[in-house]
Design a binder for these strands. Structure first.
Lengths: 343, 343
DNA sequence: ACAATTATTGACAGCGCTACCATCGCATTG
DNA sequence: CAATGCGATGGTAGCGCTGTCAATAATTGT
């Protein structure tokens, strides 16, 4: 054929342009802003691209344009299925776009987060999604000098770095406790693990809801910084029973703990909800299926991911949202485990 | 000061070299192969880098070197906690290295997988990890022309594209059924969802184990291509009971189904293990905690991730493993749910 | 002591693409 | 009809780094 190629056999934009009978820059525009080309050239370039099987060199593009098409996502855990759902939303919505996702995992370490944010800044991402609103001053500073749209997810607060999508953990927790109180329970225990900032706010909601009716008692609270497991739910519940044997309900900061509590109740033959109400948080799929079905606070994680990535992409492309903070709310899923006690 | 900078204020390697009093190429080597520098130059460059806060431009490096330091990871699901564990192993082991991870999610679609693999090939990753051994011929071809180390994970088979780390789903399943048979059960049901290739092999193990003792009966099998949930476990179990009311055990292709079966037994007041044995697969954390505790097949997911990424990185850096296929095996976790039946 | 070998270092020439600005043609306007 | 504006296109000049290979310095063996 005699078609020009580099030694490696790779086809460059120049070859495409030559075949299409246009200048390289026009071929380049074909990819970045096709509407700027006349219809005839667009078609010519298109068929040349297809004929040669041309694939753009992303590194060259990034070097020349000082931009990338990578959106960074910083989350604290890969194992926590809460983030799996958020990620699913992010990946689903990003697939139709030209952007690719670069995941980074802080493992709940704020130092690790600082390090990863600095790394991202060096890579000049097109956008960034970070978890939570409790960055260190240093991390906050990196985010503010990031020179790209940033969305904080999982919760909402007053001073967004840029954009935010989440819900109020405090309100959700407060609402859950109010519901339990309405069922006539008085001694509502609190079980917390990991105790990251969002879990802390769930505790605050619990505490204030209890204080509002003068029922708060430190003996009702058992927390640990250890990561959550179902087994841990049982252990913490046993601790709680030991320090407050008269409890008639337990609010767990997540559903794994709640399931662990249910199993421990079964083991001890404590009737649920007859003698003990259980309410979890997140509304994982199994909650509805348990016997008895377990009440929980549904959080819109998939939607959170979708909205976050959509907001970032829109902002990258100049379509800034009219309001930077999006509250996705929550729903109380009231099931058998929080029905009123039997006399 | 008069120190040279580009318009954007960014510091380039040239500036570092100038400050250190060496040539740019020497400064470049400082990052890629520090041991090639004399101690004095190494120290001079090091302090220059620190003083200027230099950050390498990865795009320029990729363009000039025709390589990247990205390792692609292709998995079929983000929600499935099995992959969350594998990913945790991958991320943990990659953090000490210079390589970063690029995740891609096929959602169990082989077409999506083809597309993603082609995309990866265009990006010239340093290495690749893909799930399973059932690629389409087209995908297989892309993998073979990938020009970088490739590790297939989750299962093992005869013809690796390059390297493999996993275990035999067939053997694991066969062993689980043998165990149930040893407890004196005869009518062992099979519950399967999603039915991806690995689940299919678990079925094969079940079928052959049952056939080996002439107990196979198609009525004992209920499967669906729907994705797994706990709730689905209950539903499938109900179907199974309807078509084979005399079953005395259920083998579930994963733990979520097994939990759903347990809940359904509780709902129907079928005693476990008195009248029904339950065995799951994967040994998720909650299995040990359930009441009764649920037997399962432990798979070494975290280790699989660690080994896979380590093998890839080693291969990138020229340290090829002596044997390309690594079998991580499995462990039968025998718990209360598969104790012998009560008379 | 001198050639041979090895460890260090540097000069040069791009990698493949896009930013910037200039140009050209054509339609619109006074 | 010239002046003006605008959409479409192209030329030039790098982006910041590293591969290649040559040059120099240090070390060794005989």
């Amino acid at each position: 054929m005699g078609r020009k190629r580099t030694k490696s056999g790779k086809i460059r934009l120049t070859e495409v342009a030559k075949l299409a009978g246009v200048s390289p820059i026009t071929a380049s525009r074909f990819f970045r802003n096709p509407s700027a080309l006349s219809l005839s050239k667009r078609e010519r370039v298109d068929s040349a691209v297809k004929e040669l099987g041309y694939v753009p060199n992303l590194a060259a593009r990034a070097l020349a344009s000082h931009r990338t098409e990578v959106i960074g996502v910083v989350i604290p855990s890969l194992t926590n299925s809460v983030f799996a759902d958020v990620l699913r939303g992010i990946y689903d919505a990003s697939e139709q776009s030209r952007y690719s996702i670069q995941l980074a995992n802080t493992r709940y370490s704020i130092l690790q987060e600082e390090k990863l944010l600095r790394l991202f800044r060096a890579q000049k991402p097109a956008g960034l999604i970070v978890t939570g609103i409790n960055q260190t001053p240093e991390s906050r500073n990196v985010l503010e000098t990031m020179d790209c749209p940033v969305t904080q997810i999982m919760e909402i607060g007053d001073s967004p770095v840029d954009m935010m999508v989440g819900f109020s953990h405090y309100d959700a927790s407060f609402a859950a406790i109010s519901h339990i109180l309405e069922q006539g329970r008085r001694r509502i225990g609190f079980l917390g693990a990991r105790m990251d900032p969002r879990v802390q706010r769930r505790f605050d909601g619990y505490r204030d809801a209890m204080k509002a009716v003068s029922l708060f008692d430190p003996n009702l609270v058992v927390t640990t910084t250890v990561p959550t497991t179902v087994t841990l739910g049982g252990t913490l519940f046993a601790d709680l029973l030991a320090q407050a044997p008269d409890i008639d309900a337990v609010f767990c900061v997540n559903d794994d703990l709640a399931l662990g509590v249910l199993f421990e109740c079964q083991r001890r033959q404590i009737s649920v909800p007859g003698h003990m109400a259980i309410v979890g948080f997140n509304d994982l799929e199994f909650m509805a299926s348990a016997v008895p079905s377990l009440s929980s606070v549904r959080t819109n994680r998939y939607e959170m991911g979708r909205h976050a990535i959509t907001m970032v992409i829109d902002a990258i492309e100049g379509r800034r949202p009219q309001q930077p903070v999006l509250d996705l709310g929550f729903q109380l899923m009231i099931r058998d485990s929080s029905m009123p006690p039997t006399a």
